[in-house]
Simulated assay, not measured.
Amino acid sequence: MSHPIRRVTELVLDQTTVTALRAALTTTADEVVQAIIDEVPPYANALSGRMGVTIRRAVRTALGHYLDLASGNATGGDAGDAAYELGRGEVRDGRSMDALLGAYRVGARVAWRCLAAGAVPAGLPAAEVAKFAELTFAYIDELSAASAAGHADELAARGRDHERHLEHLARDLLAGASPDVLLASVQRAGWQPPVSLTAVLLPAAQARPAYRTLDPGTLVLDDLPDAFGVLLVPDADRSHLLRQLTDRTAVVGPARPWTRASASYARAARARSLSSDIRDTEDHLPELVLSADAEAFADLRARALAPLGTLPVATARRLEETLRAWLLHQGRRDEVAAALFVHPQTVRYRMSQLRELFPDLASPHRVLELTLAVGLRVG
Rank of each mutant, 00 (worst) to 15 (best):
L300G: 12
L242A: 01
R160G: 07
L174H: 02
P359Y: 01
L182G: 08
L174E: 02
G72F: 03
G123T: 08
R324F: 10
A302H: 14
A207Y: 02
K131H: 10
A325Q: 14
H343Y: 10
F358D: 04
P359I: 02
R332Q: 13
A99D: 06
E85C: 07
V233T: 00
D222V: 11
A58L: 11
L354H: 11
E128S: 14
A250H: 00
D81P: 01
P193K: 04
L63V: 06
V120I: 15
L21A: 13
G72K: 04
V18T: 11
V12L: 12
P254R: 00
L166R: 14
G64T: 14
A116T: 10
Q206S: 11
P193Q: 08
R267I: 05
A292F: 12
R332L: 11
A204N: 03
E154P: 07
F358K: 01
T75D: 05
V129N: 02
G76D: 02
F341S: 12
E31W: 01
A175K: 13
N73A: 15
T61M: 11
P209D: 07
T75Q: 04
P225F: 12
P179W: 10
G52C: 08
L319D: 05
A116C: 13
A292P: 09
W112G: 04
M97E: 09
P203H: 05
H151P: 03
E320F: 08
P344A: 11
T259L: 08
E163R: 14
L300P: 07
A156D: 13
V181Y: 04
T28Q: 10
R160Q: 14
L67Y: 05
S352N: 15
R279E: 00
H3L: 12
S2R: 14
V53E: 11
A46E: 11
T322D: 12
F358Q: 05
E128L: 15
S276R: 12
L21F: 09
A255K: 01
Y84S: 03
A70K: 00
R208F: 08
G309Q: 15
R22F: 06
R50P: 00
D226R: 14
R164G: 08
V252F: 01
M351F: 10
I37V: 15
I5C: 06
A210H: 03
A99Y: 05
L323N: 06
A207P: 05
T61D: 12
R324S: 12
P286Q: 06
S291D: 09
P344V: 09
Y211L: 06
A325T: 08
V53G: 10
V40G: 01
Q192T: 06
P312H: 13
V59I: 13
L197A: 02
Y211I: 03
A302P: 06
V129I: 15
L368I: 11
G107A: 12
Y139G: 04
L368A: 15
V374Q: 03
E163F: 06
R109D: 10
V8R: 01
V91Q: 06
C114T: 12
E167M: 06
P203T: 06
D180G: 09
L219F: 05
R164L: 11
A294L: 12
E163N: 08
A306G: 09
Q330M: 07
R377L: 13
A58S: 13
E369R: 11
L245S: 02
Y265V: 01
A117D: 15
A46G: 13
C114S: 15
L86S: 00
D293N: 15
D68Q: 12
L354C: 07
